[in-house]
Amino acid sequence: MDYFIQQFINGITLGGLYALIALGYTMVYGVIQLINFAHGEFFAAGGYVGVIVLSYLTGLGLLETHPVLCLTASFALTMAYCAFLAVGVEKVAYKPLRKQSRLAALLSALGMSIFLSNGLMLTQGVYDKAYPSELFQGMIQVGGITISYLQIMILCMTGVLLVCLNTLVFKTKIGMAMRATAQDKIMSSLVSISSNRIISLTFAIGAGLAAAAGIMVGLYYGSVRYDMGFLPGIKAFAAAVLGGIGNITGAMLGGLIIGMVEVFGAGYISGEYKDVFAFIILIAVLYFKPTGIMGENIDDTRV
């Protein structure tokens, strides 16, 4: 039983991170029906900006004296940076193609992904960058179960971000505008919603969440490297599709399912097939429900 609970905690940590990245895919798809393959790179960029900011603060000696403040500052700076990066990418690579076929924008997204990850490699080097390890040292032991403070921090932070996003989308005027744009761009522009602004905002929010996931992954695994965006990007995309692409709640659910299936597959059957299990679930769900778990053709929760 201890073993089960331990793996459950591992799964929920990983799933939460996938969910954060998956949201970016699903929101962008909801608004402009584009699968933004460069999204994984925002996550990687977030990991790097995080390590740069945290190392700088460590150098100043602030990390020891004000750890919470430093962490908040690094999250804020990183999320802001990646939000701007994403808006820039949208303006450069997607906006000029908005009236073209969807395939053109998709190819542009793939190109952007290669460009960004190689840019990261050239500017930051091929070696791993280590995160400061002083933060959240230690763990709690309950019987045979170990939960590290880092896992607790990640779970809390993920929870807070998901709740904030839900509030933003379903409880505020901006969220309402986003949902309106997702449903009908022309109609929403007739009631003076600027679709360009909403699209930029969607990219910014998605990238901000991915950047937060990037820092947490860096802290959790202790290091970042330039190609870290690829695999989680693919898994998160799968999570978004699993949950029903375009649906926010679906993406959260999809992320958690993929994380859980992976961890339990590795824990109870074999580690070498963990990716296989994740994708088997994806195929099985799509076979019986092609729109994904929460996906519906017309749905007012779509963003």
Binding site: Q6, N10, V217, M228, P232, S270, E272
Partner: peptide, 20 residues
Amino acid sequence: HEHVNQGDKDFAAVLTKAKA
């Protein structure tokens, strides 16, 4: 004798198994 995949970052599941 366990196997993981190239490019993996998360080894929590396999390590929990090894620890047990």
